[in-house]
């Protein structure tokens, strides 16, 4: 009961600190903007920890954060192997292949107005479908190893990337294209100097959406069959053994990998589209 009371106290204290910070004079500084969510996150973790011990929640329902951290620290080598199998081999290679294929396809489609008008609705339609469902088929075709996972990722990222790139390549105005024409620019000159740079915000939007999709595809595909390594494999087998601390450790890895992947893409975007209004603020 003491622990539950402590949890309640910590919650009140954390919230009170955030109220003071958010309504205080320094609320708009960078430090406070970073500090407030961190305080919130730490409060949630502490309350979680205390409640699990205080209410004696069994391990098979919710392990305490400290147990998850211990498990994480003890099994770094397993987690690293799983990370390599699922993220580096499955997700990254599929992401690279899928995004480049979609990019090239978009350039090809962009030259024909007819194809573009036909493909955009189809692409939009497919992008909303539950594409992870192709996983059992692709696992059957490409085997249990990472190749099938990469294939699922390719299919998942292809259409979001395609429609974003095609939309981006239409971004220039008639004025701008006319200007290039008055310079007697060739198709490829105006492509590289005008239309591709103008499409960059859209392309990066597609690339950023695809980072999450790639991880989802690689992990879910492993639920349909995998070698005895990989994040999805570890999650589904550890769930079966009720080793929930291991599951949470894998989820931490997935979260870190997803955020880092997205962050890297956002950083590259910042460098490439420095001229765009959304990046100048």
């Amino acid at each position: 009961m003491m622990l539950v009371g402590a949890a309640f106290l910590i919650w009140v204290l954390g919230w009170w600190m955030n109220v003071r910070l958010a309504n205080g004079p320094a609320a708009d500084t960078r430090g406070v903007k970073l500090l407030v969510p961190v305080i919130f996150g730490v409060t949630v973790l502490l309350v979680w920890e205390l409640l699990v011990w205080g209410l004696e929640v069994p391990l098979v329902i919710l392990p305490a954060p400290s147990l998850i951290a211990t498990r994480f620290a003890q099994s770094t080598s397993i987690l690293w192997q799983d990370f390599q199998q699922t993220f580096v081999k499955g997700a990254l290679s599929g992401y690279f292949i899928g995004c480049s294929a979609a990019f090239l396809m978009a350039i090809a489609v962009d030259r024909s107005d007819f194809l573009r008008r036909g493909l955009l609705p189809v692409g939009n339609f497919v992008a909303a479908l539950p594409i992870v469902g192709t996983a059992p088929i692709l696992v059957m075709w490409f085997g249990f190893d990472w190749h099938s996972k990469a294939a699922v990722v390719v299919v998942m990222v292809f259409f979001p990337m395609l429609i974003n790139t095609v939309a981006g390549l239409r971004e220039t105005t008639a004025m701008q294209r006319d200007l290039m024409e008055t310079y007697a620019a060739s198709y490829w000159q105006s492509f590289f100097k005008l239309r591709l740079p103008a499409a960059m915000p859209f392309i990066f939007n597609g690339l950023k959406i695809s980072t999450t999709l790639a991880l989802i595809g690689a992990i879910v595909a492993e639920f349909f069959g995998s070698p005895t390594v990989g994040m999805g494999f570890r999650i589904s087998t550890s769930v079966g053994q009720l080793a929930l601390d291991m599951v949470w450790a894998e989820i931490v890895v997935a979260a870190l990998a997803g955020t880092a992947f997205y962050g890297v893409m956002a950083l590259i975007e910042k460098g490439v589209t420095f001229w765009h209004p959304s990046q100048r603020g």
Partner: peptide
């Protein structure tokens, strides 16, 4: 304002995580 500053960053980060796992 407090909820905005405490919760919103986490909601945005959650979009980059494969929470379906």
């Amino acid at each position: 304002r407090v909820m905005d500053m405490s919760v919103m960053p986490w909601a945005i980060i959650s979009q980059t995580i494969p929470i379906i796992a």
